[in-house]
Design a binder for these strands. Structure first.
Lengths: 210, 210
DNA sequence: GTGCAAATCGCATATAAATGTTAATTCTGC
DNA sequence: GCAGAATTAACATTTATATGCGATTTGCAC
């Protein structure tokens, strides 16, 4: 039995979702409040639910602030955003704050039910438009990827090893080459980048200067 | 009618998917090859498909390399990965290279069909496990952000020195303290951050984990 | 096949970094 | 004012890095 809580200030929507979910055999949805503050009160006295459906626009504290606070004290609660906002900022702020999924409000009741189950099975339910924005967040960098580093593929491997905090010996083991070869590559890398320490290579690399 | 292409070297899987998709009224799946190289040949002579289903492990060029090349010449083709790999590196490399979705191979045929349609409607189909990893990519930083620094102001100064690529001696000079003091601070920093090399401190710092 | 870049490996040596131990001064919160 | 953290410092030892010099092999371009 999955225990669900709802934080949503629109009473009609809240009741509708609560009734529907609670009606399901596998779900228990007894907790439905209209602010993060109320939910925090509830959590102090009763057992924590498994999943929280959370709106963003709420009286008092916003849903995003709520995520951080709730996640801090109850890290095991999975938070699923259910909101009308589809702007990148709200989406990313929610995810960074600790939300495990993000649904838009036009999501149908059966889809919400499915999403909750998906969440409990280790998934991360997202409305398609949201998924697309999340993916695009990764896509963008490529086009701007100015990758004309004069480093050879092998040299780049070695740099990656350094960035991972590995010693020469560990890098040698990772690529199954001798430590002297690693030294040789490092020497060449230093020459190409005009540096003379691991530290500088790592800094350059993590700043995207390689 | 959505035009689909497949790049998959396992002939059984390839035929199975091709037949199933091509059988659908709304889909056209005539192109199915077993390497990126072949697909590139095909694209030169014929009209580009709307969607490409792509494996990662392929003879010749890997699917991830393939994404970059194909996206560069045919930016309008949507690429949907279909692979057994669920490790973060492959997932993120694919997304950064320009994939628009990522499915694991156990995905059922109807789900693949649904994913293709979802993709054409502006979604970004992902298997639940994949979605979770993508979301966690955002979640992680906060958890580390929460255990705020704990480094003292002086320790942070020393870290900045390391990030600037300075040696102990140079840091000592910069702050007008002895090299042994620098050593002492470094020791404490290592303890607090649970690391044991300059390289790791620099990496953590530049990743915003300090 | 010549030539050149890339990748491999060895040996030697001077610096630098990592770590253990100890301890004297501030500074700060209660 | 006192406990505890922060900052300072010295000394010793073991590893790791940085760098110089040389050398073989492989693959690719001309």
């Amino acid at each position: 039995m999955i225990k669900i809580g709802i934080v949503e200030d629109n009473i009609k929507i809240r009741n509708l979702i609560q009734r529907y979910l609670d009606m399901q055999d596998e779900l228990d949805c007894k907790i439905a409040v209209d602010s993060v503050e109320e939910m925090l009160e509830h959590l102090k006295e009763y057992d924590a639910p498994d999943v929280l459906l959370m709106d963003i626009q709420l009286p008092g504290m916003s849903g995003i602030e709520g995520i951080e606070i709730i996640k801090k004290d109850y890290p095991d609660i999975e938070i699923l955003m259910l909101t009308i906002y589809h702007d990148s900022h709200k989406i990313f702020d929610s995810l960074v704050a600790g939300a495990s999924g993000y649904l838009l409000k036009h999501t149908s009741l059966p889809e919400i039910k499915e999403s909750v189950e998906n969440l409990m099975e280790g998934g991360a339910p997202m409305s398609p438009q949201i998924a697309r924005k999340v993916i695009e967040h990764f896509n963008k960098p490529i086009k701007e990827k100015k990758n004309d580093s004069s480093l050879t593929a092998r040299e780049q491997d070695i740099v990656n090893g350094l960035v991972d905090g590995l010693s020469y010996k560990m890098i040698a083991d990772r690529f199954d080459i001798s430590i002297d070869t690693v030294r040789a590559h490092i020497r060449n890398i230093y020459k190409k980048l005009h540096v003379n320490s691991k530290a500088q290579v790592i800094a350059k690399s993590l700043r995207g200067e390689i």
